[in-house]
Amino acid sequence: MASFDFDQAEGLRRMLAGPKPRIVTFLSATAQDDKGAMLVNLGASLAQSGNDVLIVDACEHDYGVAQRLGVDRGPGLLEVARQECALNQVIHPAPQGFSVVKMRPGRTADERRRLAKAFDVLVKQAAGSIVIVDGEFSDEGGFPVPIMESSEIVVQVSTGATSITNAYALVKRLSQHLGRRPFGILVTGATEAEAKVVYDNMSSAATRYLAVTLSSMGSVPADEYLQRAARLGRAVVDAFPLAGASVAFRRLAGRFATGVSRAA
Protein backbone atom coordinates (compact mmCIF):
# COMPACT_ATOMS: atom_id res chain seq x y z
CA MET A 1 0.00 0.00 0.00
CA ALA A 2 1.36 3.42 -0.90
CA SER A 3 2.16 5.62 2.09
CA PHE A 4 0.21 8.78 2.86
CA ASP A 5 3.42 10.84 2.63
CA PHE A 6 4.14 9.46 -0.85
CA ASP A 7 0.59 10.13 -2.04
CA GLN A 8 0.71 13.65 -0.61
CA ALA A 9 4.07 14.38 -2.28
CA GLU A 10 2.84 13.00 -5.61
CA GLY A 11 -0.29 15.15 -5.40
CA LEU A 12 1.83 18.22 -4.65
CA ARG A 13 4.06 17.53 -7.64
CA ARG A 14 1.01 17.27 -9.90
CA MET A 15 -0.39 20.53 -8.54
CA LEU A 16 2.91 22.33 -9.09
CA ALA A 17 3.25 20.87 -12.57
CA GLY A 18 -0.09 22.42 -13.53
CA PRO A 19 -2.17 21.54 -16.58
CA LYS A 20 -0.32 20.36 -19.66
CA PRO A 21 -1.19 21.53 -23.15
CA ARG A 22 -2.41 19.06 -25.71
CA ILE A 23 -0.22 19.10 -28.83
CA VAL A 24 -1.68 17.88 -32.12
CA THR A 25 0.45 18.01 -35.27
CA PHE A 26 -1.47 18.10 -38.56
CA LEU A 27 0.03 16.88 -41.82
CA SER A 28 -1.73 16.89 -45.16
CA ALA A 29 -2.03 14.87 -48.34
CA THR A 30 -4.53 17.34 -49.83
CA ALA A 31 -4.24 20.43 -52.02
CA GLN A 32 -1.89 23.12 -50.71
CA ASP A 33 -4.54 25.46 -49.34
CA ASP A 34 -6.83 22.82 -47.80
CA LYS A 35 -4.99 22.28 -44.53
CA GLY A 36 -4.71 25.99 -43.72
CA ALA A 37 -8.42 26.51 -44.34
CA MET A 38 -9.32 23.48 -42.26
CA LEU A 39 -7.12 24.55 -39.32
CA VAL A 40 -8.50 28.08 -39.26
CA ASN A 41 -12.02 26.69 -39.01
CA LEU A 42 -11.07 24.00 -36.49
CA GLY A 43 -9.24 26.56 -34.35
CA ALA A 44 -12.23 28.90 -34.48
CA SER A 45 -14.62 26.06 -33.56
CA LEU A 46 -12.47 25.03 -30.60
CA ALA A 47 -12.20 28.65 -29.42
CA GLN A 48 -15.95 29.17 -29.83
CA SER A 49 -16.59 26.20 -27.54
CA GLY A 50 -14.44 27.73 -24.79
CA ASN A 51 -10.97 26.29 -25.45
CA ASP A 52 -7.72 28.27 -25.45
CA VAL A 53 -6.11 27.49 -28.81
CA LEU A 54 -2.62 28.23 -30.12
CA ILE A 55 -1.79 27.38 -33.74
CA VAL A 56 1.91 27.06 -34.58
CA ASP A 57 2.63 27.45 -38.30
CA ALA A 58 5.61 25.16 -38.86
CA CYS A 59 5.28 25.04 -42.66
CA GLU A 60 8.36 25.78 -44.70
CA HIS A 61 6.98 25.07 -48.18
CA ASP A 62 3.20 24.82 -47.94
CA TYR A 63 0.67 27.62 -47.53
CA GLY A 64 0.39 27.75 -43.75
CA VAL A 65 -2.01 29.38 -41.30
CA ALA A 66 0.25 32.36 -40.57
CA GLN A 67 0.54 33.21 -44.26
CA ARG A 68 -3.18 32.68 -44.73
CA LEU A 69 -3.95 35.15 -41.93
CA GLY A 70 -1.24 37.63 -42.95
CA VAL A 71 0.88 37.35 -39.80
CA ASP A 72 3.92 35.70 -41.38
CA ARG A 73 5.92 38.81 -42.28
CA GLY A 74 7.35 39.69 -38.86
CA PRO A 75 9.67 37.77 -36.55
CA GLY A 76 8.80 34.24 -35.50
CA LEU A 77 9.90 31.62 -33.02
CA LEU A 78 13.28 31.25 -34.73
CA GLU A 79 14.01 34.90 -33.96
CA VAL A 80 13.06 34.23 -30.34
CA ALA A 81 15.52 31.33 -30.35
CA ARG A 82 18.20 33.69 -31.69
CA GLN A 83 17.33 36.11 -28.85
CA GLU A 84 16.41 38.81 -31.38
CA CYS A 85 12.96 39.39 -29.85
CA ALA A 86 10.73 38.34 -26.96
CA LEU A 87 8.26 35.47 -27.07
CA ASN A 88 5.21 37.72 -26.62
CA GLN A 89 6.21 39.62 -29.76
CA VAL A 90 5.60 36.60 -32.01
CA ILE A 91 2.22 35.48 -30.61
CA HIS A 92 -0.51 37.05 -32.74
CA PRO A 93 -4.21 37.03 -31.78
CA ALA A 94 -6.44 36.10 -34.72
CA PRO A 95 -9.96 37.50 -35.12
CA GLN A 96 -11.25 33.92 -35.21
CA GLY A 97 -10.50 33.59 -31.48
CA PHE A 98 -7.18 31.74 -31.38
CA SER A 99 -3.51 32.77 -31.38
CA VAL A 100 -0.92 32.13 -34.10
CA VAL A 101 2.87 31.76 -34.01
CA LYS A 102 5.10 31.38 -37.06
CA MET A 103 7.98 28.92 -36.69
CA ARG A 104 10.66 28.84 -39.35
CA PRO A 105 13.03 25.84 -39.16
CA GLY A 106 16.56 26.21 -37.82
CA ARG A 107 19.37 25.95 -40.36
CA THR A 108 22.24 24.82 -38.13
CA ALA A 109 22.44 22.28 -35.31
CA ASP A 110 22.73 25.12 -32.79
CA GLU A 111 19.69 26.91 -34.23
CA ARG A 112 17.65 23.71 -34.14
CA ARG A 113 18.63 23.15 -30.50
CA ARG A 114 17.71 26.73 -29.57
CA LEU A 115 14.45 26.48 -31.52
CA ALA A 116 13.50 23.31 -29.65
CA LYS A 117 14.05 25.12 -26.32
CA ALA A 118 12.01 28.13 -27.49
CA PHE A 119 9.18 25.81 -28.54
CA ASP A 120 9.29 24.08 -25.15
CA VAL A 121 8.95 27.47 -23.42
CA LEU A 122 6.06 28.38 -25.74
CA VAL A 123 4.28 25.11 -24.95
CA LYS A 124 4.77 25.52 -21.19
CA GLN A 125 3.38 29.05 -21.41
CA ALA A 126 0.35 27.60 -23.22
CA ALA A 127 -0.44 25.25 -20.33
CA GLY A 128 -4.10 24.29 -20.41
CA SER A 129 -4.39 25.15 -24.11
CA ILE A 130 -4.76 23.03 -27.21
CA VAL A 131 -1.62 23.53 -29.30
CA ILE A 132 -2.22 22.80 -32.97
CA VAL A 133 0.83 22.49 -35.22
CA ASP A 134 0.40 23.21 -38.92
CA GLY A 135 3.24 20.91 -39.83
CA GLU A 136 5.33 19.23 -42.47
CA PHE A 137 7.33 16.00 -42.30
CA SER A 138 10.60 16.58 -44.12
CA ASP A 139 11.92 14.38 -46.91
CA GLU A 140 14.76 13.44 -44.54
CA GLY A 141 12.17 12.15 -42.09
CA GLY A 142 11.88 14.71 -39.35
CA PHE A 143 10.04 17.61 -37.75
CA PRO A 144 11.46 21.07 -36.96
CA VAL A 145 11.48 20.29 -33.21
CA PRO A 146 11.70 16.85 -31.52
CA ILE A 147 8.59 17.27 -29.33
CA MET A 148 6.42 17.01 -32.46
CA GLU A 149 7.51 13.40 -32.84
CA SER A 150 5.77 12.50 -29.58
CA SER A 151 2.71 14.69 -30.21
CA GLU A 152 -0.55 13.38 -31.58
CA ILE A 153 -0.24 13.24 -35.37
CA VAL A 154 -3.23 13.60 -37.71
CA VAL A 155 -3.05 13.19 -41.49
CA GLN A 156 -5.60 15.07 -43.59
CA VAL A 157 -6.78 13.30 -46.73
CA SER A 158 -9.47 13.85 -49.37
CA THR A 159 -11.44 11.34 -51.45
CA GLY A 160 -9.18 11.68 -54.52
CA ALA A 161 -7.04 8.71 -55.51
CA THR A 162 -3.83 10.77 -55.50
CA SER A 163 -4.55 12.17 -52.05
CA ILE A 164 -5.28 8.69 -50.65
CA THR A 165 -2.08 7.30 -52.17
CA ASN A 166 -0.03 10.20 -50.80
CA ALA A 167 -1.63 9.89 -47.36
CA TYR A 168 -0.79 6.20 -47.17
CA ALA A 169 2.78 6.89 -48.29
CA LEU A 170 3.04 9.58 -45.59
CA VAL A 171 1.79 7.18 -42.90
CA LYS A 172 4.37 4.63 -44.12
CA ARG A 173 7.21 7.20 -43.88
CA LEU A 174 6.05 8.30 -40.45
CA SER A 175 5.99 4.73 -39.14
CA GLN A 176 9.42 4.00 -40.62
CA HIS A 177 10.99 7.00 -38.89
CA LEU A 178 8.95 7.20 -35.68
CA GLY A 179 8.29 3.53 -35.07
CA ARG A 180 5.02 1.72 -34.61
CA ARG A 181 2.40 4.09 -33.16
CA PRO A 182 -1.16 5.22 -33.97
CA PHE A 183 -1.98 8.05 -36.37
CA GLY A 184 -5.24 9.93 -36.82
CA ILE A 185 -6.98 10.30 -40.18
CA LEU A 186 -9.20 13.28 -41.01
CA VAL A 187 -11.11 13.14 -44.29
CA THR A 188 -12.15 16.50 -45.78
CA GLY A 189 -14.35 17.34 -48.74
CA ALA A 190 -16.34 14.17 -48.15
CA THR A 191 -19.70 12.98 -46.91
CA GLU A 192 -19.68 10.71 -43.88
CA ALA A 193 -20.26 7.69 -46.13
CA GLU A 194 -17.39 8.67 -48.46
CA ALA A 195 -15.11 9.34 -45.49
CA LYS A 196 -15.89 5.90 -44.05
CA VAL A 197 -14.84 4.20 -47.30
CA VAL A 198 -11.56 6.18 -47.41
CA TYR A 199 -10.78 5.51 -43.77
CA ASP A 200 -11.72 1.81 -43.87
CA ASN A 201 -9.51 1.20 -46.91
CA MET A 202 -6.54 3.08 -45.43
CA SER A 203 -6.95 1.46 -42.03
CA SER A 204 -7.13 -2.03 -43.52
CA ALA A 205 -4.00 -1.48 -45.63
CA ALA A 206 -2.07 0.11 -42.76
CA THR A 207 -2.93 -2.74 -40.41
CA ARG A 208 -2.11 -5.44 -42.93
CA TYR A 209 1.06 -4.07 -44.54
CA LEU A 210 2.51 -1.69 -41.92
CA ALA A 211 1.20 -3.12 -38.62
CA VAL A 212 0.06 0.45 -37.89
CA THR A 213 -3.22 1.38 -36.22
CA LEU A 214 -5.14 4.34 -37.66
CA SER A 215 -7.88 6.25 -35.83
CA SER A 216 -10.70 8.13 -37.50
CA MET A 217 -10.85 11.78 -36.43
CA GLY A 218 -14.02 12.38 -38.45
CA SER A 219 -14.81 14.23 -41.66
CA VAL A 220 -15.77 17.62 -43.08
CA PRO A 221 -18.04 17.83 -46.15
CA ALA A 222 -17.43 19.92 -49.24
CA ASP A 223 -19.42 23.12 -48.65
CA GLU A 224 -19.63 26.34 -50.67
CA TYR A 225 -20.07 28.25 -47.40
CA LEU A 226 -16.44 27.48 -46.55
CA GLN A 227 -15.30 29.59 -49.51
CA ARG A 228 -17.86 32.28 -48.77
CA ALA A 229 -16.64 32.59 -45.19
CA ALA A 230 -13.00 32.68 -46.33
CA ARG A 231 -13.75 35.56 -48.70
CA LEU A 232 -15.25 37.41 -45.74
CA GLY A 233 -12.13 36.72 -43.69
CA ARG A 234 -14.17 34.75 -41.16
CA ALA A 235 -14.59 31.18 -39.98
CA VAL A 236 -17.57 29.30 -41.35
CA VAL A 237 -18.86 28.52 -37.82
CA ASP A 238 -19.09 32.25 -37.19
CA ALA A 239 -20.32 33.50 -40.56
CA PHE A 240 -22.67 30.62 -41.42
CA PRO A 241 -23.35 28.65 -38.22
CA LEU A 242 -26.06 26.45 -39.78
CA ALA A 243 -23.96 25.33 -42.77
CA GLY A 244 -23.10 21.65 -43.08
CA ALA A 245 -19.40 22.41 -42.67
CA SER A 246 -20.13 24.37 -39.47
CA VAL A 247 -21.97 21.41 -37.99
CA ALA A 248 -19.05 19.15 -38.92
CA PHE A 249 -16.44 21.49 -37.44
CA ARG A 250 -18.35 21.82 -34.18
CA ARG A 251 -18.54 18.04 -33.96
CA LEU A 252 -14.85 17.79 -34.84
CA ALA A 253 -13.93 20.40 -32.23
CA GLY A 254 -15.84 18.49 -29.57
CA ARG A 255 -13.95 15.33 -30.36
CA PHE A 256 -10.54 17.03 -30.43
CA ALA A 257 -11.25 18.83 -27.17
CA THR A 258 -11.97 15.53 -25.44
CA GLY A 259 -9.28 13.57 -27.26
CA VAL A 260 -11.72 11.02 -28.64
CA SER A 261 -11.18 9.10 -31.87
CA ARG A 262 -13.10 6.20 -33.30
CA ALA A 263 -13.21 3.66 -36.07
CA ALA A 264 -15.23 5.38 -38.80
Rank of each mutant, 00 (worst) to 15 (best):
K102A: 04
K102M: 12
M103W: 00
P105G: 03
G106Y: 03
R107G: 06
A109T: 12
E111D: 05
L115N: 01
A116R: 06
A116F: 04
K117H: 11
V121K: 12
V121I: 12
V121P: 00
V121R: 11
L122M: 05
V123D: 01
K124A: 13
A126W: 04
S129H: 11
S129D: 11
S129G: 00
V131H: 04
D134I: 03
D134S: 04
D134Q: 03
G135N: 01
E136G: 04
E140W: 01
E140D: 12
G142T: 13
F143E: 06
P144I: 04
P144T: 02
P146D: 07
M148K: 00
E149G: 15
S151N: 10
E152N: 03
I153A: 02
V154N: 02
V157G: 02
V157R: 06
S158A: 08
G160M: 11
G160E: 15
A161D: 15
T162Q: 11
T162V: 10
S163F: 03
I164Q: 15
I164K: 06
I164W: 03
N166C: 12
A167Q: 08
Y168V: 02
L170V: 07
L170G: 02
K172V: 05
R173I: 08
L174C: 08
S175A: 15
L178N: 06
L178I: 08
R180N: 10
R181H: 01
P182D: 07
F183R: 09
F183Q: 12
F183M: 09
I185E: 04
L186V: 10
V187T: 14
A190T: 10
V197N: 06
V197H: 10
Y199S: 12
D200A: 15
N201S: 15
S203R: 09
S203N: 14
S203L: 05
S204E: 14
S204Q: 14
Y209I: 08
L210C: 06
L210V: 09
V212C: 07
S215A: 14
M217H: 13
G218R: 14
V220A: 12
E224Y: 03
E224D: 15
Y225W: 15
L226T: 13
L226P: 08
